[in-house]
């Protein structure tokens, strides 16, 4: 399973990198989404997927054997990362919208000059 997941992550990365290398800004934004999702998956995989119980302590019990649940730490980290990427995504959207509005072009190669025309 790890092998398949790793290949899936590789595919996501390949797609993300390809999108990011485009000249059209919309594609670049999409690429950034893909890359952030793929990176979250890497962290998730790093926590191990053999143990797949939900990370909750059952009612009445005092603790739970770590060997039975999936690792909670990567989950917490990814949760943070997802919400941050939500913020980043909206910021990039706003930025690109603004860029398009100001420059009137969506070709990133036109961005090589910092001055407005």
């Amino acid at each position: 399973m790890e092998l398949i997941l790793a290949i899936f992550i590789g595919l996501l990365y390949a797609c993300g990198v390809y999108l990011v290398l485009r000249r059209s800004i919309v594609k670049v934004i999409l690429g950034i989404f893909v890359l952030s999702n793929a990176t979250n998956l890497i962290i998730f995989l790093a926590g191990g997927i053999k143990r797949s119980g939900a990370a909750f302590i059952a009612e009445g019990a005092e603790k739970i054997d770590p060997a039975t649940i999936s690792d909670p730490l990567p989950q917490a980290l990814i949760l943070t990362a997802i919400v941050i990427s939500l913020g980043i995504a909206s910021y990039i959207l706003a930025l690109k919208y603004k860029y398009f509005e100001v420059t009137g072009t969506h070709d990133l190669d036109q961005l090589s000059k910092t001055d407005q025309k």
């Binding site: 919400v83 939500l86 913020g87 909206s90 959207l93 706003a94």
Partner: peptide, 13 residues
Amino acid sequence: VVIGVILTIVISI
């Protein structure tokens, strides 16, 4: 904060 952030963004847009 999450509500505020998302609403700020959405309302602005």
